[in-house]
Amino acid sequence: MDLLTYMETDGLRLGVRTASGVLDVKAAAGKITASLNAAVPATLQELLDGGDAALASLQSLVNQAEGDRLLFKEEPDLTLGPCVPNPGKIICIGLNYRKHAEETNLPLPAYPILFNKFANALAAHGEDVPLPRSSDKIDYEAELAIVIGKTAKYVSKEEALDYVFGYCAANDLSARDLQSRTSQWLAGKSCDKFAPLGPYLVTKDEIGNPNDLAISCKVNGELRQNSNTSDMIYNCEEIISYISQCMTLEPGDVILTGTPEGVVQGFPPEKQVYLKHGDVVTIEIQRLGALTNRMVTE
């Protein structure tokens, strides 16, 4: 199932992308709920908190809504929100692709490198991203994002994917000059709208193996990153298990799993051209769609 959020006058609404268009879950639930066996989740967080029963109820709603054109919207007409609009935590993994470590001349990490972004960094597909006045070295990073679906603490690698709800594309935008001032990367990682997510949150049953997905980044149509999640040093199972040894993961938490080679920081100094006003960055991941944002002067 492909899920998204979009703006209406009453705020963000939950939508389901189908062959017929985007199902307005709120409108469909108001019309069809009486014939369903369980309540339909009204928001993405309700869906995440409700687990398998909530997902089954939503799928039943989608099935029954088919054929009623009034319940579907045309996706190009919508203003999307972040596909996960209220994550409790945004946890990121640094230096997690072998070829990215090589291009930056850094040793492979002995453990996953954890850092974080905050909710102010969230942005949607199609949303402009302001380039902060405090930096002139803004870089792109194509990343696979894991969205947690069940409370996870001290889980094994073997069971880790059981705690996943789904996946989405992300751009871990980074102000390299702010990032490198200290050993802690936060200043360069959590600038406003530096974590675009979307356009869709795709349930894990649609994806299969998350450790074998094509991933790419284009800037103004020019291919900059072109890799596969199979190049990750720590795969999705290892990442989830490791983080769960450090903290409790809750439904809706987002994990950005690292970026492949091809970022500006990895180029020789004379070839480093960082993002500027008007640049359009598109992150695309196999089966997850393409996430596009334009950079603008703050």
Score class of each variant (00 low, 15 high):
Ser57Cys: 11
Gly166Gln: 01
Gly30His: 07
Ser190Met: 06
Ala56Val: 06
Gly188Arg: 04
Ile91Arg: 04
Glu141His: 14
Arg69Trp: 03
Thr18Met: 09
Ala121His: 06
Lys276Pro: 01
Gln184Ile: 15
Phe115Pro: 08
Pro85Arg: 08
Gln225Phe: 07
Pro268Gly: 08
Ser135Thr: 13
Gly221Val: 00
Tyr97Lys: 03
Ser135Pro: 06
Lys99Asp: 12
Leu173Gly: 00
Cys246Arg: 13
Asp24Glu: 03
Asp2Met: 11
Val147Ala: 03
Asn96Phe: 09
Gly266Tyr: 07
Ala142Cys: 15
Phe165Tyr: 15
Val84Leu: 00
Asn86Thr: 06
Leu106Phe: 09
Leu275Thr: 03
Lys189Gln: 01
Glu74Ser: 15
Met1Phe: 11
Pro87Gln: 02
Val296Leu: 10
Lys137Ala: 15
His277Trp: 00
Leu44Asp: 02
Ala175Val: 05
Thr292Asn: 05
Thr297Ser: 14
Pro82Phe: 12
Ala187Thr: 05
Ala34Phe: 13
Leu291Lys: 08
Leu144Asn: 00
Thr5Arg: 08
Tyr167His: 04
Pro210Lys: 06
Val16Lys: 12
Asn86Trp: 02
His277Thr: 08
Asp162Gly: 08
Met295Tyr: 12
Ile243Trp: 08
Met1Ala: 08
His125Trp: 09
Leu161Met: 15
Pro112Cys: 01
Asn220Met: 09
Lys276His: 08
Pro109Leu: 11
Arg98Asp: 09
Glu127Tyr: 08
Thr182Leu: 13
Ile243His: 03
Met295Asn: 13
Asp192Gly: 10
Asp212Lys: 14
Thr9Trp: 07
Asn211Ser: 09
Gly67Gln: 05
Asn211Asp: 15
Lys276Ser: 14
Glu46Thr: 00
His100Lys: 10
Pro87Tyr: 02
Ser244Arg: 00
Gly166Lys: 00
Thr104Leu: 15
Ala27Ser: 13
Gln265Ser: 04
Ile138Glu: 01
Asp205Pro: 04
Phe267Met: 14
Ser241Tyr: 04
Cys217Tyr: 03
Leu55Pro: 03
Arg133Lys: 14
Leu122Ser: 02
Gln286Thr: 03
Asn220Pro: 03
Arg13Phe: 13
Glu103Thr: 13
Glu102Ser: 03
Val280Tyr: 06
Lys26Glu: 13
Ser135Trp: 02
Glu206Gln: 14
Asp231Leu: 06
Ile146Lys: 01
Trp185Arg: 09
Ile146Phe: 01
Asn120Arg: 14
Lys26Leu: 14
Arg69Ser: 15
Lys137Gln: 15
Lys189Gly: 02
Ala28Asp: 02
Gly289Cys: 08
Gly30Tyr: 10
Leu12Glu: 10
Leu213Tyr: 01
Leu108Glu: 02
Gly149Tyr: 00
Ala53Gln: 13
Leu108Phe: 09
Asn86Ser: 04
Pro268Ile: 05
Leu173Val: 12
Arg133Tyr: 04
Leu12Arg: 14
Lys193Val: 11
Thr79Arg: 15
Gly21Glu: 08
Leu58Asn: 12
Leu70Thr: 11
Val62Ile: 12
Lys204Asp: 04
Leu288Pro: 05
Ile283Asp: 05
Ala290Gln: 12
Ser230Trp: 01
Leu44Gln: 06
Leu131Glu: 04
Val155Cys: 02
Ala38Val: 02
Leu58Gln: 04
Ile255Tyr: 07
Lys193Glu: 07
Leu47Asp: 09
Ala53Gly: 05
Ala160Asn: 01
Glu284Arg: 14
Val16Thr: 05
Thr18Asp: 10
Gln272Gly: 07
Asn220Asp: 13
